Measured scan of single mutants.
Amino acid sequence: DLSALRVEEVQNVINAMQKILECPICLELIKEPVSTKCDHIFCKFCMLKLLNQKKGPSQCPLCKNDITKRSLQESTRFSQLVEELLKIICAFQLDTGLEYANSYNFAKKENNSPEHLKDEVSIIQSMGYRNRAKRLLQSEPENPSLQETSLSVQLSNLGTVRTLRTKQRIQPQRTSVYIELGSDSSEDTVNKATYCSVGDQELLQITPQGTRDEISLDSAKKAACEFSETDVTNTEHHQPSNNDLNTTEKRAAERHPEKYQGSSVSNLHVEPCGTNTHASSLQHENSSLLLTKDRMNVEKAEF
């Protein structure tokens, strides 16, 4: 173990290094160091905050020279020094078990990766560091076993998940096959086929009936047209017969005018059967003409 005197000496050296690497504005270890034209180094955030307070150039807090945003430059070497100082402080805390008085939040800088452990060898070769390295080497064999167990647990979990997924996939297939086998029997399929065939026959029977009705309507229309044509021909046949009657009536009127007047009046009210309204109107006109002729003949006879 380190003596108290040596611990104090190391602590004083760390404090001196820390004062050199402090920012003059925030009085902390410089984060993202930036250098000016006057070779003074500050935190990048502190300098941008200072420049944004005034429009135009501002003055350096140490030498009062003008500073602009374009004049600022990043210093990589200074950032490396800060990183190495942080590593020294971490090693000091691990070796002594004491917390550094002016320690900052170094938890963000710590890294437990194997590459980081290899890099620590180049920091300080001390008894405390050696003991700590031995402890780490002793704890390393235990870690692979834990990793193997965790991997086995994960693989077993994956296997159970896969088996569950396969079961879920197989179950719908089985149910679907069961439904297909038990849903419709052979008799049901035959009945469905016969039902479809009967429906098709009914459709075939319905369509000819409609065509037959249309044919019957067409035949009825044709018969009505033929009947009207026969009526017209009958009226045409009746007209010459009426003319013959008129000639006979004229002759009778010349011989017996008194008797014919009474008979002509009675004939006005008689309509021949089986004739249309057109034929009756023609008869009325003929009878009126005959009456006028008879009157003329009677007057001539009187004179």
Rank of each mutant, 00 (worst) to 15 (best):
K221V: 04
L27W: 04
N234H: 02
I89T: 05
K44N: 04
H237Y: 12
E99S: 11
V34I: 06
E99I: 14
S79V: 04
A279C: 15
S71K: 01
M47I: 06
D218Y: 05
K118Q: 05
D200V: 06
V232T: 14
S156P: 14
V265K: 09
A223Q: 14
M17S: 00
P57L: 07
I206Q: 04
Q80I: 06
R162K: 10
R6S: 05
N243R: 09
H278F: 15
E299D: 07
G262I: 06
L50E: 03
I123K: 09
T149F: 01
N131Q: 01
L50W: 15
V161I: 11
Q125K: 13
Q205G: 13
G159L: 02
D184N: 06
T248Y: 07
S3F: 12
G262F: 15
L158Y: 10
K54D: 11
V34N: 01
T166P: 03
R130S: 14
P257G: 11
N157G: 07
D119R: 04
D1A: 03
L51R: 01
H278S: 09
Q125S: 13
R165G: 12
S3R: 07
K69M: 04
Q205H: 09
S3V: 13
S79W: 01
E9K: 03
Q261Y: 07
Q209E: 15
E32R: 02
E99Y: 00
H269D: 05
I20E: 15
K250I: 02
N105V: 15
E214Q: 07
S139H: 05
K109V: 14
T233I: 14
Y129S: 09
T149P: 11
R255I: 03
S280N: 12
K134L: 07
K31M: 07
L2G: 03
Y195V: 08
Q53T: 03
E8C: 02
R70L: 14
A223Y: 11
S150C: 09
T96K: 00
E226H: 15
P33M: 05
L290S: 08
E148D: 11
R6V: 07
L217M: 13
S216T: 05
T194I: 09
D188E: 12
V161A: 08
D244Y: 06
N157Q: 09
T189N: 07
L164S: 13
C60I: 02
D213M: 07
E229A: 09
I20D: 14
Q201S: 15
G262L: 08
N157P: 12
K55T: 12
D294F: 13
A107S: 02
